[in-house]
C-alpha cells in the first residue's frame, strides 16, 4: 500500500510528510472492507495497531512525500477509459432500442429515443477526442494540465448522462438490479449510474477540476 504519513509534526503543512510503500501483510495492519452502494468491494478501512514500518519502506527523501504524491496523481490523466466505456454503452443501447418493441413499435422508431441517442453519440465522440487531446500533448512531450481536467470533467458528467439516458429509455426495467431475470443489458446502466457518483469524486472532484480549468485554462483569479 501507499502510506502517506506526517513524519515531522512541526513542519508547515506540505512539508514534513513522507511517502512509504508498506506491505499490507505487516503484523498490526488490518483491513475492513467498505462495500459500496453497488455492493462492490473496492475500498477498505485500514487500521494500524503497533505496526512497525522498516526504514526501507520509505520512498524517496524523508519529509518530501507531499511532492512525490503529486507525481503519483499526475499518472492519472487522459480519462480514456470513461470515454470508451460510454461508447460501448451507447452501442449496447442502440442495439437494445432496435430489438425492443413497446406498444407495437420499436423503441428505435420513437423520436424521443432517437434524439436522445443522437445527443449521446455526439457526446461520446467528443469525450474520446478530449482524451486523445491529452494523450497527444503527452506524445509531444508536453505536460497536459487543464486539458486533462476538461477531459476528466466532461467524461465523468457524460457517462452519468449516458447511464441516465439508458435507464430512462428502458423505463422501469432500467432500475432493476443486475441479478434480476428481467433486467435489460445485464444491468450495466443501473450499475454505471451508481458507480458514476464515485467517479465524480475520485481523481479530483468535479469542483476541483472546474477550479483548475478556471484558473489555469481561463486565467481567472484564485477564488
Amino acid at each position: 500500500m501507499i502510506l502517506i504519513a506526517r513524519t515531522d509534526p512541526d513542519a508547515p503543512k506540505h512539508k514534513g510528510i513522507s511517502y512509504f510503500l508498506v506491505d499490507m501483510k505487516t503484523p498490526g495492519i488490518s483491513t475492513r472492507p467498505l462495500i459500496d452502494m453497488m455492493n462492490n468491494h473496492g475500498f477498505n478501512e485500514v487500521f494500524f495497531e503497533n505496526a512497525r514500518v522498516p526504514r526501507d519502506c520509505l520512498l524517496g527523501e524523508e519529509n518530501r512525500g507531499w511532492y512525490m504524491a503529486t507525481t503519483t496523481l499526475d499518472f492519472e490523466r487522459s480519462s480514456i477509459g470513461g470515454a470508451v466505456g460510454a461508447r460501448k454503452m451507447l452501442e449496447e443501447l442502440v442495439a437494445y432500442t432496435r430489438n425492443t418493441r413497446l406498444n407495437g413499435h420499436r423503441l428505435a422508431d420513437e423520436v424521443r429515443v432517437r434524439t436522445r441517442l443522437a445527443d449521446a453519440g455526439v457526446e461520446a465522440e467528443l469525450g474520446r477526442l478530449l482524451s486523445y487531446r491529452v494523450a497527444t500533448l503527452q506524445a509531444r512531450g508536453q505536460v497536459p494540465n487543464y486539458e486533462a481536467s476538461i477531459a476528466k470533467l466532461f467524461n465523468t458528467d457524460m457517462q452519468l448522462r449516458m447511464a441516465k439516458s439508458g435507464m430512462e429509455i428502458m423505463g422501469l426495467y432500467g432500475q432493476l438490479d443486475h441479478r434480476s431475470r428481467w433486467v435489460p443489458l445485464r444491468g450495466r446502466f443501473e450499475r454505471q449510474y451508481l458507480w458514476q457518483t464515485g467517479l465524480a469524486v475520485g481523481g479530483g472532484t468535479t469542483e476541483i477540476q472546474k477550479n483548475i480549468i478556471a484558473m489555469r485554462g481561463l486565467g481567472l483569479p484564485r477564488g
Partner: peptide, 16 residues
Amino acid sequence: VGWAGSTGIVYGTEEQ
C-alpha cells in the same frame, strides 16, 4: 501499476 509502481520508478531505490 497506476500509482505505487509508477512513483517507485521515479523515486525508488534500486532495491525497492
